[in-house]
């Protein structure tokens, strides 16, 4: 599981999740995700390369979303495959952060 960060215009941070966010994968990115949650205001999560998402990974995403929003920021996710999207919807996480199809839609939510 890899996590890459790109700083974009408008104080937006793109977080690219690449791999499997299972128990091991979530542990691998937890620290980086917490740093992002505590320091970035506008966060777009790129889930195009996210192959798997389990409950441990969900907890990491929920924590980031809650922290960013509590600091007055905004967060959205885009590009999730059909299975990952089902996980997000069944868990109700889509009520915490918008899940959209593409990058442009996610950026539009940062305005």
């Amino acid at each position: 599981m890899q996590l890459l960060i790109e700083e974009l215009d408008g104080d937006v941070t793109k977080v690219i999740l690449d791999g499997r966010m299972d128990i091991t994968g979530a542990q691998n990115v937890d620290l980086k995700m917490n740093v992002i949650a505590g320091s970035k205001k506008y966060v777009v999560i790129d889930a195009q390369k996210l192959a798997f998402l389990g409950s441990m990974g969900l907890r990491t995403i929920v924590t980031v979303a809650r922290t960013v929003k509590s600091r007055g920021g905004k967060i959205a996710m885009f590009g999730a495959n059909q299975d990952v999207e089902k996980v997000l919807k069944m868990s109700g996480v889509n009520t915490l952060l918008p899940i959209v199809q593409d990058f442009q839609s996610a950026i539009a939510l940062m305005q």
Binding site: G54, R66, V87, M90, T95
Partner: peptide
């Protein structure tokens, strides 16, 4: 309740919920 799980008020339940969904 899903709100309690997501708000971190109580631990657990998310994995079982996902299991039942899949």
């Amino acid at each position: 309740p899903i709100e309690e799980t997501l708000e971190g008020k109580r631990e657990g339940g998310l994995g079982i919920r996902l299991f039942r969904s899949f």
